[in-house]
């Protein structure tokens, strides 16, 4: 009876633990996806280009990689969106807005001064910069509470 009462009294905390476990699993899937596509990206943008610098196969590989990355990101985003609550959703939308504005600003910079910047692939630098801005915005909001 006492055990049942204790269980009844803390069912909310167990619910939170379940949610936390699911969120960690999704975070793990996100990290695994980033590693897989990061390695594949290295191949299609450098190793593959070294083997076949200008070829239809190399271009098709890059295109497949980009489409796969977008699809994986969309699926992960959908799963995460279903899992999180309204406060976290608002923070995610804020962070996505920061990432979008950052990509627009960085794209302008890359277009105007791409050749002066020390990057072999200015567009990839824009992508990485926008992703960094998005992740920074998530972390900043999390720290602020």
């Amino acid at each position: 009876m006492i055990n049942n009462d204790a269980r009844e009294a803390s069912w909310g905390e167990r619910n939170v633990e379940r949610r936390t476990r699911r969120r960690w699993a999704l975070a793990g899937a996100g990290v695994a996806t980033s590693i897989v596509f990061g390695l594949a990206g290295q191949y299609v943008t450098s190793v593959g280009r070294f083997v076949a610098p200008v070829s239809d196969a190399a271009d098709a590989g890059s295109l497949l990689w980009a489409v796969g990355l977008i699809l994986a990101a969309a699926i992960l985003f959908r799963l995460i969106w279903r899992e999180i609550d309204e406060v976290q959703r608002r923070r995610l939308v804020n962070a996505a807005a920061v990432g979008g504005v950052a990509s627009m600003a960085l794209l302008l910079l890359a277009q105007a001064a791409g050749r002066m910047l020390p990057f072999a692939e200015p567009m990839m630098a824009v992508f990485v910069g926008a992703a960094a801005a998005l992740i920074s915005a998530i972390i900043f909001q999390r720290i602020r509470g």
Binding site: G12, E13, N15, D85, V87, G145
Partner: peptide, 22 residues
């Protein structure tokens, strides 16, 4: 955490509401 679980939201959400940030 207990309140968050009973409302089916995150602990962050409870904290943000309690402190008036959301």
């Amino acid at each position: 955490a207990e309140l968050a679980g009973r409302l089916d939201v995150s602990r962050q959400a409870v904290n943000a509401i309690e402190t008036g940030k959301y």
